[in-house]
């Protein structure tokens, strides 16, 4: 019983970060219908940035998003104007080809700069465990989950209460009507793409407090966030969060009670089953 609780709880904490990663993808796919295969590699890239900041300048992993957030926003905007906006009118396979090219490029660059071996940071100031009623909780994971929740909340506020957020939602609902209302859709798309990428900067920083990074982990994070998106459907933030928790918990349970190697198996099986049973997702709006 105690093991189950422990496992579920650590899954919930992980799920919050997964939801944060998937939120970035949801912004990109939901708003401009662009299939971004490089999203997982954005996470990997920001984890390497965090590693760099931590090992070269001794900046703590939790604080690096202050630097990497604007950096990845800029990166996303450049990628949008340089590559994505030129292929918006093309067949969707062309967009996939472009983002796969980007994915290969990012992976190769990280291999070139940081070599292929796994990297990890030695410490963070939120190290250690806390005990709550006999259960041991890693502090770094708890803090990461809380920060993820705060970020998801503020993105929700941004989308619902501010003008750029409203413009993003309007273009996502009806591109033509939004353009007629005087919204510059190129700018809105660029903001959405930049924001989607920069969310991975926060996730990357949080992940680095308790994980290592290697160049091949991009595809895994990419498929993981697509899985959460399939589960959640488009356009529902609470749905996204719940889906993230479902994925996190099932991964954690599979690791505890079956086999550590089975974690991805369980996630992908959920993904395939959800697509078969409910192609619109469980909480989907569109």
């Amino acid at each position: 019983m105690e093991t189950i609780f422990q496992s579920v709880f650590s899954g919930v904490l992980m799920g919050c970060i997964y939801a944060l990663i998937a939120l970035g993808l949801s912004l990109i796919f939901g708003v401009m219908n662009v299939v971004n295969f490089a999203h997982g590699d954005f996470v990997m890239l920001s984890m390497y940035f965090t590693f760099w900041a931590g090992s070269l300048w001794g900046i703590d992993a939790v604080l690096t998003p202050l630097v990497t957030f604007p950096l990845l926003f800029l990166f996303g905007v450049i990628i949008y104007y340089g590559l994505i906006s030129r292929t918006l009118r093309e067949h969707y396979t062309i967009q996939i080809a472009i983002t796969v090219g980007l994915m290969t490029f990012l992976r190769a660059i990280t291999q070139l700069v940081w070599q292929a071996r796994p990297r990890a940071l030695t410490y963070s100031f939120i190290q250690g465990n806390i005990q709550v009623g006999g259960y041991v909780i890693a502090l770094s994971r708890l803090v990461s989950a809380i920060i993820s929740l705060i970020i998801i909340g503020s993105i929700s506020y941004f989308l619902n209460r501010t003008w750029p957020g409203r413009e993003i939602r309007a273009t996502s609902d009806d591109l033509d009507a939004a353009s007629l209302m005087g919204i510059n859709y190129q700018k809105t798309y660029a903001i959405a793409f930049g924001l989607g990428s920069s969310l991975t900067a926060i996730a990357g920083g949080l992940l680095m407090t308790f994980q290592q990074v290697d160049p091949t982990m991009g595809l895994r994070f990419g498929l993981l966030s697509w899985c959460i998106l399939a589960l959640a459907g488009l356009g529902s933030l609470p749905g996204l969060l719940i889906s993230g928790l479902i994925v996190g918990v099932s991964e954690s349970l599979a690791m505890t009670f079956w086999d550590p190697r089975a974690r991805l198996l369980v996630i992908y099986l959920i993904f395939v089953l959800v697509l078969w049973v409910r192609p619109r997702g469980i909480f989907g709006r569109k």
Binding site: L102, T104, F105, A108, I109, T110, Q111
Partner: peptide, 16 residues
């Protein structure tokens, strides 16, 4: 290591 992949991916993106 990795340089050949950089060149390859740049060619791929340019072609697309």
């Amino acid at each position: 290591s990795g340089l050949y992949l950089v060149i390859y991916s740049v060619i791929l993106i340019v072609v697309v």
